[in-house]
């Protein structure tokens, strides 16, 4: 055992795990807080929807596409001035969260938009026929009906963020992925690589399992 995991420093691994979890939790929370309303607005302003608005929809859609087409590593770097403005530093765990959010929120917004499109048009029409306002339709009908898709989208986003966090090592954010790259890959410490990758795998498995459970819990179809 000792020889097998000679290079593994468990304290470092624990620290890396903690860093990953903080980055993941923080960036997922902000991605949902920003992505959910963005997805709702994308849906509502689309042609033939409740608040159809061609110009607003085109502008938002274009912005989302721009952000989604920039490779994450480049986003990390070009965002440095904005990151400093937002969190006071461009380094470490805190410095990684703004670019993670800017990378993931538009992605999540698209997943939310797709989930909302799946909602039966008849249900929206029934709510309109009752005299519901757009706000009442969104909160009383659309979001509850789309909840399974919205939660499944959050799961996909969380897992995508796990792999983004690995790249956040570029700004010295640490985390499991960073450990795997720096020690496991660059210094040929295969045992460190295996341990960190296994932990990442466990994390992804756990997220998927928890997400699936949540989706089942809210599905009533």
């Amino acid at each position: 055992m000792e020889a097998l995991l000679a290079n593994v420093v468990w304290a470092d691994i624990a620290q890396a795990l903690l860093d990953t979890l903080i980055m993941l939790g923080g960036s997922l929370a902000f991605s949902v807080i920003l992505g959910l309303p963005l997805g709702v607005i994308l849906f509502l302003t689309a042609p033939r929807q409740l608040l159809a608005n061609r110009a607003a929809n085109a502008a938002l859609s274009f912005t989302v596409n721009v952000l989604r087409s920039v490779p994450f590593v480049i986003l990390l770097i070009v965002m440095i001035p904005l990151t400093v403005l937002l969190v006071g530093t461009s380094l470490g765990v805190a410095g990684a969260i703004p670019p993670l959010v800017v990378g993931a929120a538009p992605f999540y917004a698209r997943l939310v938009e797709t989930a909302l499109r799946e909602v039966d048009r008849g249900v929206i029409e029934a709510a309109q026929a009752m005299g519901a306002t757009p706000r009442q339709i969104v909160f009383g009908a659309l979001l509850p009906e789309a909840m399974p898709g919205i939660l499944a989208g959050a799961t996909v986003t969380a897992i995508a963020l796990v792999s983004y966090t690995a790249m956040a090592g570029v700004v010295g954010a640490g985390g499991l992925g960073d450990l795997a790259i720096r020690f496991g890959y660059q210094r040929f410490q295969t045992d460190v690589m295996v341990v960190t990758v296994l932990m990442l795998l466990a994390l992804v498995q756990g997220l998927q399992w928890a997400g699936d459970r949540l989706v089942i819990k809210v599905s009533r179809r």
């Binding site: 039966d120 008849g122 249900v123 029409e125 029934a126 309109q128 026929a129 009752m130 005299g131 519901a132 306002t133 009908a141 509850p144 009906e145 909840m147 809210v218 009533r220 179809r221």
Partner: peptide
């Protein structure tokens, strides 16, 4: 229009109920 719609009920071929409620 919303005020009028509250005075007029409507039912549908495919019921259009909220499946989540």
């Amino acid at each position: 229009l919303r005020a009028l719609r509250r005075r007029v009920g409507m039912i549908f071929q495919h019921f259009n109920l909220l499946s989540s409620k």
